[in-house]
Write a protein that binds this DNA or RNA. Structure first.
Lengths: 141, 141
DNA sequence: TTGCGTGCAAAGGTTTTGCATGGCA
DNA sequence: TGCCATGCAAAACCTTTGCACGCAA
């Protein structure tokens, strides 16, 4: 855990702006590196990771761990969303590995139910629904 | 994804027995390696990982990812749990590691909803809800 | 005998760290 | 000027893979 940054640097600024321009999109640390390499304003890999960690701590972006052997995903959390404390759920297909992002209000039922009836505070960041996606199910038959 | 093993080997047998002797305990692949190294019946690291993957696929053990930068944890799943299959959900506490079994019909809403609205066939056996349990939440305050 | 399972070593990929340099306040 | 942030390279780490050998059926 790093302390909150004390200096305002160009790297941090353009990183934050980049995430703000991508609401609802999931990207990996490597994606971010590649992007800035392409735009001609490369940022060191280590800096990317350090800033990403910071942004997560500050609640500006969210980190998702889908699978132990896939890179972590990061997503900008809009100000509205941050206030609502909402976030999306994930479905992972066991067959093709596809990751599906669900931003579904009905699923908040699940969170409420677990908290009210089972005294369990669900963490949507960590929770992944495993199953079979539509395409793979159709391909089976 | 590996195919189901066709031969019964000593390595697989003692690995399964080892997990059966540890209900409710979560250990890492490395822990398993170390254990067998100490007992004088070492098993190759690669074999450990290969068998672990198999056992997860067969539903005999479960794999948990608590943190992206910690090794994955494995835990034996008792036969009772396996038999109940569709009707049992699991919650894992991120703090104390406790595994909570939920037998709740209301949660079938989740399965139905994902299937009807999102074309996703949930696999309750593989899916684990991560969050904070009652005790840990109370201990926080 | 056949071919799967094993073990070793090496590779693979993600993330962290050490250290010198650069930049903010 | 004093520190913090950055960037490079290398390390650390967990996990997978290639390949030859051993063993189950």
């Amino acid at each position: 855990m790093n302390a909150r940054p004390k200096y305002k640097t160009k790297q941090k600024e353009i990183l934050t702006e980049y995430f703000e321009s991508l609401p609802g999109v999931h990207i990996t640390a490597n994606d971010v590196c590649e992007y800035f390499k392409k735009t001609g304003t490369p940022i060191g890999q280590a800096t990317i990771y350090r800033r990403l960690e910071n942004l997560v701590e500050e609640g500006i972006i969210r980190k998702y761990i889908i699978d132990s052997n896939s890179p972590a995903c990061f997503e900008y959390v809009g100000k509205e969303i941050r206030v609502e404390n909402g976030s999306c759920f994930h479905c992972k297909c066991e067959k093709c590995g596809k990751l599906i992002h669900l931003r579904c209000d009905e699923l908040m039922f699940l969170k409420d139910h677990l908290e009210a009836e089972h005294d369990f505070r669900l963490d949507p960041l960590r929770t992944v629904f495993y199953g079979i996606c539509d395409e793979c199910r159709n391909a089976e038959n």
